[in-house]
Amino acid sequence: MTGRRAGVPWALLVPALAGLAFLVLPLAGLLVRAPWSTLGARLAEPQVLAALRLSLVTATLATALCLVLGVPLAWLLARTRFPGQGLVRALVIVPLVLPPVVGGVALLMLLGRRGLLGRWLEAAFGVTLPFSTAGVVVAEAFVALPFLVISVEGALRAADSRYEEAAATLGASRWTAFRRVTLPLIAPGVLAGATLSWARALGEFGATITFAGNFPGRTQTMPLAVYLALETDPEAAIVLSLVLLVVSVAVLALLRDHWGLGARAG
């Protein structure tokens, strides 16, 4: 960037600035309309605290679930070859482009009381996932998992697989090589993926409300609380939105500082 503003054509500059304004102004509006004087009292309200607590707990559990399932899945995609691999990769990405509501409906069809697996889960273990806190975790993990898989697979592809060969010549099995060499090497990618997944899980709305419903204290996460409050108490909605905004910006800052995302990184 050399500051040669004269060189920027108007046809590009005007839409670019309009685009920036389009992204920033709504957030500014949120800040301007926030009830700053009563903010402290509002934040201390039990419903707000319950929703915040539930959001943080479920997003963290969903991220843990994503790590347990997603890192091995990414390894399989990056380090092995099997027939239909392209199809598997496409299927992994589907939840990324699927409307979350559809994801929620799909989860109901599988894990609902009358769902294919849900019926069996209830009969065998007495477990019902829909409309429970566990259901929230499942819905959030469903939409967040692709973010983790994509990040980790990218990190695995960027990591030199010859380190694994070196480990093998030193007597390490594939599992040992993964645990002691590969995982530490791709740790930044795993952390970045986990953070993205966590942020996605925190903001999850469509799949959650469809699959887990909207019960305060049990399944009502922050985004659901915001939506409900907008009907009855717009100021509360603004306060809740501010909290989510602060959390999101904090996550972004963390990503930038620690893993070189944003700024100049490609």
Binding site: R162, A168, T169, L170, V181, L185
Partner: peptide, 19 residues
């Protein structure tokens, strides 16, 4: 398999584990 052979290898660019 590789890991069961009594073999030691020095790679051209060494491949020392950076961590």
């Amino acid at each position: 398999p590789v890991e069961a052979r009594p073999v030691g290898m020095v790679f051209q660019d060494y491949l020392l584990f950076p961590h």
